[in-house]
Design a protein around this nucleic acid. Structure first.
Lengths: 238, 238
DNA sequence: CGTCAAATTGACAAGGTTCAAGGACCGTGG
DNA sequence: CCACGGTCCTTGAACCTTGTCAATTTGACG
């Protein structure tokens, strides 16, 4: 509720710029608006809740750095992650009623964010926001198929590919490699499994030579082949 | 693609009126616009695909009668229903890119629909559309928690409660009873289970006295108790 | 009465969970 | 520098939920 707003941070917003520019080539007005917004950046610490409401602003927010997720907790403590929130993502673009849906947003790392510039400032920005909204919707739908119809092995592969795509869009992937600050328990909450089973399935994927995971670093050895193995195809990033 | 547009139908759009009016009390302009739209109603037959694209209109559409669902099919034939579409629901309110997400909409019964009146015609209509959009989003998120963290028994209970809520909103429920034209296989595709397991779990729910299901008729014996059993509470329909 | 889709049943296999314990890693304080 | 505590990862064994396969029954309808 009354969390520290954190001090201004020196984060330069590069990933957010990268992602929004990839969604719709930004014009000068958009870039300027973003630069200004970056100067109002705040940071909240790990495990904090992060919502437009809890940070005292009714405007949508733009994530500059860090990982978070929208998640739902059941009465008996079971948790389900609805979608991950990564640098460059926007929160609260449409005003769905968080409260009524028992949904919270939790930070898994310290998260740097700023108010999202008003999209009326630039047509490019408006386009980028629309694309971002569409992508978020697509990720949510992908999550349904993932947990509804894929087995543990496929769920992990599918999620890793989504993360690689999304981080690449923000310029945060290094080839087929990226940093993933998630515990196996968090993965379990995302994939509708237990952390024990995540652990075993990850080991299998390592032995199969599909993934190299150590600590927070993930390498997808052959994305194309992994896409094929779960019957999808590499999306042309439009 | 080139499907028969169907003939004009005598459907009066009552469920759609009921639902939209419940979401936001309609003014005269809205009602008039809807009445006009109803006269342009079309019907498509069972098992048809139903998308703004396949029915030659770029405008969103309003469902007047019948059941459908948005679903995704995997390369090997596995299917996952993303959400059900019921009378009074709107399709294509935001232009998410159906094509890019390999999502289709399939009719489980003959479906009557009409173009959705432009929301600029009435502030009430605009409010109703916004509420409808928020509800759809909530249902999609509920679906994630359902298949991610509930067991078979809970999934069925949770879905039945959602259907009762939604049909009540459209005036299509008779107390705790409603008509559900879905096969057990369709339920399986919605709940991430197999039809065999749906069958067994339904029988259990019948024996437990929770549900009375015969043919297409469903009765939820004690909604309140069922809500409690899955750790939710009856939503105040706002 | 014949036909077809849908519902139902049984036996069995597989995938995932549970419980419990041990080990690795990391920051902190002495 | 090392001991300590906490969090996360790893492992084993038993168990349970759900899936698979294949056959039979039911029900709607022409």
């Amino acid at each position: 509720m009354n969390q520290r707003r954190g001090s201004l941070t020196k984060n330069d917003g590069t990933p957010a710029l990268h992602r929004l520019n990839a969604l719709a080539p930004l014009d000068d007005a958009a870039i300027m608006a973003l630069e200004i917004a970056f100067q109002r950046a705040r940071i909240i610490s790990q495990r904090r809740e992060l919502t437009p409401d809890s940070i005292n602003t009714r405007e949508p927010i733009l994530v500059l750095d860090g990982w978070a997720a929208r998640l739902r907790t059941l009465a008996d403590g079971r948790r389900q992650i609805l979608n991950f929130i990564l640098p460059g993502d926007l929160i609260g673009l449409y005003g769905y009623d968080q409260a009524s849906t028992a949904t919270t947003i939790t930070a898994f790392t310290p998260v740097t964010f700023c108010p999202a510039p008003n999209m009326s400032l630039s047509p490019a920005l408006e386009l980028a926001y629309a694309a971002s909204r569409a992508l978020e919707e697509a990720h949510v739908l992908a999550q349904i198929t993932r947990i509804g119809r894929l087995n543990a092995h496929e769920r992990i592969a599918d999620l890793m590919l989504e993360l690689l795509e999304r981080l690449s869009l923000a310029g945060l992937a290094n080839g087929n490699e990226f940093t993933m600050p998630l515990t196996q328990e968090i993965l379990a909450d995302a994939l509708g499994l237990t952390s024990v089973h995540i652990n075993r399935t990850l080991q299998l994927a390592r032995r199969e030579g599909e993934l190299e995971i150590s600590g927070k670093s993930v390498r997808i050895c052959d994305p194309e082949s992994l896409y094929r193995s779960i019957g999808r195809h590499h999306p042309a990033i439009d």
